[in-house]
Simulated assay, not measured.
Amino acid sequence: MLTRRFVLGLLAACAVGALSPAQAQTFTKQVTIIVPYAPGGTSDVLARLMAPKLSAAIGQPVIVENKPSSSGNVGADYVARAAGDGHTLLITDAGTLASTPNLFKKLSFNVQTDLVPVTMVSFSPYVFAVHPSVPASTFEELIAYDKANPGKLNVGTSGVGSVQHLTAIVFSKKYGIKWGIVPYRGGAAAVRAVVSNESNVIFNGAIATQPFVVQNQLKGLAVSGEKRLQALPNLPSFKELNTPVTDTGSWQAIYASKGTPPAVAKKLSEEFGKILAAPDVTAKIAELGSESRAGTPEDLSKWMTKSIAEWGEVVKSENISLD
């Protein structure tokens, strides 16, 4: 009779044998995807959507671990310091990651040298919404309400220095809005705070925010980007409103630890590219109000360099400092 240990070993050998030699050599243990925000946000939803498919592709367990912190810096630092072997990954709001070098002069990691680009994942426009109790149904009405009630509104954000935070500051300067800005431990926590009326205004990725608007738990006013969302066709786009920042939103990307070989980063990029091209994944991401944006490590590196420069101009022109 075969022993249980022998059978398990045989099954494991078969699983590895089904992989290519390169896969078997590259991935030798559990892969952990770090989400630097609380569960339920955009990064978390995407990580849990892709993890089982990555596991099937590489023949190793893939788990998702949340390490929430202000703006995701603790989670990013954790990944930056992990072994550079491709087994510890970061999925994060790349726009917020791009803003941090201009806002925090004492970061414990360097965005461009301590994290290895793997791939962009998606772009999710922001849904700009308020608690239903706020007596405003359009962006113009919200501005008018704030001017009549200065200091009464609070914007919930995913953390200090996040793109939501910067967007709220830019809007307040442009339109003379006197709202407060309240940081939470990720976008999901910020959404929950506004749904409960702890805060009352939010800019947040559609994946985590759109369902609450559809269910009338939040009142949508607009969406970022150049076009309207299919699921929320009555909400004007930021381009239509001629806002000071149009393409602001949740750009999700995956990074590996410092020292991860280029060949491993490329292999991961290819696997994630296949996952994001799968019809069921593409359809699910679209259903959630986002768009798949897979690409090469080089594409992500160029995007990050460009975004750091662009957010640097915003921070400089608006004289924003968080240190």
Rank of each mutant, 00 (worst) to 15 (best):
I207T: 13
T305P: 06
I169G: 03
A263V: 01
F6R: 12
Q60D: 05
E271A: 15
Y145H: 02
S71K: 05
V194W: 10
E318T: 13
V35H: 04
E240Y: 12
G186Y: 11
G40K: 13
A283I: 08
V170Y: 04
L19S: 05
S137W: 07
Y78I: 14
L46W: 08
A51K: 03
V264K: 06
K152S: 09
L10R: 10
K147L: 03
S250V: 13
I308P: 06
A168N: 08
L103G: 07
S269F: 00
I169C: 03
G225L: 05
S70F: 09
K219G: 05
P244L: 02
A188H: 13
L8P: 09
E141W: 02
F139P: 04
Q60R: 12
G187W: 06
S43D: 14
G75L: 09
P150M: 00
K239D: 02
V134T: 00
V74Q: 12
F139A: 05
L153P: 00
N200Q: 01
K302L: 08
L268Y: 03
K267P: 04
L54V: 01
N154G: 12
L322Y: 12
E270R: 12
L8N: 11
P262F: 03
S292W: 06
T88A: 08
V191T: 11
I177Y: 10
Q252I: 15
S69V: 00
N197P: 03
N234A: 13
A188E: 09
S69C: 01
T260D: 02
P183N: 01
I202W: 05
E313V: 13
V163N: 15
K284E: 12
T138G: 04
L276V: 04
V79Y: 03
D44Y: 01
R293T: 05
H165M: 07
R192T: 11
S301I: 06
F139D: 03
D247Q: 15
G41C: 06
K267A: 11
M120W: 09
K29Q: 14
L221D: 01
L322E: 12
D323W: 07
E291F: 15
S224W: 11
G187T: 06
R185I: 14
G156S: 04
F104C: 10
G176K: 03
I202M: 07
K178P: 07
P101T: 01
V201W: 06
S196F: 09
A38I: 09
K105F: 11
G220S: 08
S162A: 12
P135L: 03
L90G: 02
V191Q: 13
I33D: 07
G249F: 02
V35M: 06
N319F: 12
N102H: 13
K284G: 08
V118N: 10
G59L: 00
N204P: 10
S172K: 11
K147P: 05
F171L: 15
V160H: 15
F109Y: 14
V182M: 15
V191N: 15
I34V: 13
V214N: 14
Y37Q: 14
T32E: 13
E141T: 02
G180C: 01
K258V: 02
A57D: 05
A82V: 00
P39R: 09
A22E: 11
V201N: 05
F123T: 10
S99K: 13
S250K: 11
L10P: 08
R4C: 09
D44M: 02
Y37D: 15
S43Q: 14
A57R: 10
G41K: 09
A190W: 07
